[in-house]
Amino acid sequence: EINATPKGWSCHWDRDHRRYFYVNEQSGESQWEFPDGEEEEEES
């Protein structure tokens, strides 16, 4: 699962919740759901 993350994302293990979470390396935002690989940036 770690190697399957889309480009620009990293996968980390949360010991407290015993599950993986994903970090967007560009924005620093994290989420529980597996990233779909589409950038959802809304910068103007």
Results as ranks from 00 to 15, higher is better:
W9M: 02
R15S: 13
E33Y: 00
E33R: 07
E39Y: 07
K7D: 09
E39I: 10
Y22K: 15
N3V: 10
S44L: 08
G37V: 12
G8V: 01
T5R: 05
F21P: 06
A4S: 06
S44M: 03
D36C: 10
R15C: 08
G28T: 01
H12G: 05
E39P: 14
I2E: 08
E39V: 13
Y22D: 03
W13H: 03
H17R: 14
H12L: 06
A4R: 12
R18M: 09
I2N: 10
E25Q: 13
F21L: 11
Y20Q: 06
Q31M: 04
G28H: 02
D14N: 06
N3P: 13
S10P: 00
W13C: 03
W9E: 01
H17F: 12
I2V: 08
E40W: 10
N3T: 05
E42H: 12
E39L: 14
F21Y: 00
A4Q: 09
P35M: 01
Q31E: 01
Q31R: 10
S27R: 04
G28L: 05
R18S: 10
D14L: 00
Q26R: 10
S44T: 10
E38W: 06
P35D: 01
S30K: 15
S44D: 11
P35A: 04
W13Y: 08
Y20T: 06
R15L: 09
E1R: 08
D36S: 13
W32S: 07
S30H: 05
N3H: 09
W13T: 04
G28F: 00
H17D: 08
G8L: 01
E33V: 04
G37W: 09
Y22E: 03
S27N: 04
W9P: 03
E29W: 02
Q31T: 09
G8K: 04
A4M: 13
W32K: 07
A4W: 12
K7A: 10
E41M: 11
E43W: 08
D16A: 07
E33W: 04
E1N: 06
R19M: 08
N24V: 00
N24S: 06
S10T: 06
D14K: 00
E25S: 05
K7P: 13
E40K: 13
E33A: 11
E42W: 06
E43P: 14
Y20N: 11
G37I: 07
E33P: 02
P35K: 03
E38Y: 06
D16H: 09
P35F: 00
N3W: 15
E41W: 08
S30Q: 15
R19H: 03
S30E: 11
F34K: 15
I2L: 08
F34L: 13
D36A: 11
E25H: 07
Y22R: 03
F21C: 14
E1K: 14
D14V: 01
G8S: 02
N24A: 02
D16T: 11
R18L: 13
E43M: 09
A4K: 12
G28P: 01
H12Q: 04
E25R: 08
A4G: 13
S27A: 02
S44A: 08
G37N: 02
E39Q: 14
E43T: 13
Y22G: 03
E25L: 09
N24G: 02
G8R: 02
F21W: 06
G28A: 02
I2K: 00
E42C: 12
N24R: 05
Q26F: 12
Q31P: 00
Q26K: 15
P35T: 01
E25C: 05
W32F: 14
F21D: 06
Q31G: 04
W13G: 03
E1V: 03
E39D: 09
W9L: 01
E25G: 06
V23M: 05
Q26P: 00
G28E: 01
D16M: 08
V23G: 02
E33D: 07
V23W: 04
E42I: 04
Q26E: 06
D14H: 06
I2G: 06
R15H: 15
G8I: 03
E41I: 09
D14P: 00
P35W: 01
